[in-house]
Design a protein around this nucleic acid. Structure first.
Lengths: 135, 135
DNA sequence: TTACCATTTAAAGTTAGCTCTAAGTCAAGT
DNA sequence: ACTTGACTTAGAGCTAACTTTAAATGGTAA
């Protein structure tokens, strides 16, 4: 039978509106319809959607995801460009992870500061309001 | 003397426009002005801005950063709530890192697939177009 | 003095990614 | 037959974070 849009929405923690929006934007050209025109998602469709969410959640714009879907539909001639896209995107993801790590250091520095100067012995004379975050 | 807005923009890889926007949104209430009304950034201001960028680049909305800045201005009564904000935000950042790691796995799976089935011996009969990305 | 910068403000415009509304269709239950 | 609820579309509306524009001011260099 396949899954209805609301079942899929639940599974992926999206709204049906959002899934229709993705469809409208060209991200789901493969999803079939029932006799009455309702979307029917197959298991393979869920795999596509999982990949789409992966790309979206790692910061790829919807337009670029659409382009990738288009390449997939075009067939094997686009295999190399698709592979390159994943390589490039992988680099992007690693960069994001590095950025998060760096920023986590700053946050941890601040937390250390609050712990050391503010909460032990409720010492309110020391200035926890300063913003020096180290070099 | 302090730094001009364009010097700061350069340092932080932002535009002067963006910095003025942050100021307008209440993120930079501490920045002084010269006699002629131009912003003059001190070293301490740069530390603030560094923290602001850290929070922004880890996904904190500008409104929430503004709220934090407001708490700082209010003084020591808000220390505990600020500390809690950093604790909460730290959790968010860790969650983001976990998400990135999970999604990186999917990307690596795809890359492995492209490497195995598509590029070795230029074997174009195998279907690299499929989207099954594993369980 | 004139030209050329960088700066200022207020306000309008842009983009991405939804989010919601209106009006309609269809299938199942009472 | 009627009601309820899930689905459909087109299109309008919304929010965040800029980004650009217009008009004005001030400092420096030739």
């Amino acid at each position: 039978m396949g899954y209805t849009i609301s079942q899929v929405a639940k599974k992926f923690d999206l709204t049906a509106h959002t899934i229709r929006y993705y469809d409208k934007e060209g991200l789901l050209p493969f999803v079939d319809r029932s006799k009455t025109g309702n979307r029917e998602f197959s298991d393979s469709d869920l795999d596509w959607l999982k990949l789409i969410c992966c790309l979206k959640n790692t910061g790829m714009p919807i337009k670029q995801i659409k382009q990738y879907i288009g390449w997939c539909l075009q067939g094997d001639d686009t295999i190399e460009i698709r592979r390159q896209m994943f390589l490039d995107h992988r680099k992007e993801v690693l960069k994001q992870m590095d950025n998060l790590k760096e920023n986590l250091k700053i946050i941890d520095y601040k937390l250390e500061f609050y712990a050391t100067n503010c909460n032990i012995n409720d010492n309110r004379n020391k200035d926890c309001n300063q913003l020096s975050i180290g070099k």
